[in-house]
Amino acid sequence: MAMVSVKNLKKTYGKFTAVDDISFEIQKGEIFGFLGPNGAGKTSTINMMIGLSRPTAGEITVDGIDVRKQTKKAQSIMGIVPDESNLYNEMDGFNNLCFCAALYGMRKKEREAKALELLELFKLKDAGKRPFKAYSKGMRRKLTIAAALIHSPQVLFLDEPTTGIDVESSRQIREMIVDLKKQGTTVFLTTHYIEEAERICDRIAFIANGHIVALGTVPKLMGSISHGHGIHFLTDKNAESFATELETCFKGTKVTIQPDHSLVIVAEQRIPLFPVIAFFQDRGIDVFEAREIRPSLEDVFVKLTGIESSVLKKDAEKVGPK
């Protein structure tokens, strides 16, 4: 049985449809990425999944619990990190964690021990007695994640966990997410960052205009778009002088010259490397570099959604630097 199951989920606000009939499943211990630009329906989806918003139609279950009918029971096994760090500014880090633990009914000794453990884990022990309002953005994010983990949830929902924070904190958060997966926690992650999703997610869903346009593992998504096989060559001569000759020698190939005067050979079939090297050697051309060109997840995203990846990057920049 899937840990999280979403079936035909729909959310409308008046005439506007934010989420339109989406379905997916997340297995136990999986990191599931939800990738899309602002307004694609990511936050609407996550809000319905955590019980903060009512679906217009569809079903959501978490560990077999119907989120619509047994919201509070489902929430007891969820850890939730909203897109904004929303702990109490007046309280210090330690007391914020203890308060969050109390909301889950944890006893004093248990919650204090767990709060200390998490402060240690997130390298925030020294800041534990500082008020939350004095924390940097990265520290605020880490403490918000720690608060979501205080009751050892089975499923962790992370809405844009690394948006707007420094590189070091982002790296620590990504490492922590991978560690949680190793411990068996199921993670649902929404993000603007394609590289982040590619690096840590087991499966990714691309969402655009409320629809899931593609869903699968990174290799599966890569393979889902048809592309030729390409090799990039960097030589000691300007490639323009022999590009046409190269195309004539190797039937079915297309040679394009790059701005740095290197060249890319593309063909429908895989291109054997040695004949091409021999071609260069015969003409006294030295080859410094030859590498196979693979489509990136970014290429796949652009092709499948029709949205330029720069749109995602701009969305992320609106929130803050990574």
Partner: peptide, 8 residues
Amino acid sequence: ERLLLAPI
């Protein structure tokens, strides 16, 4: 939101 999302 923390209170709304708590299992109480």
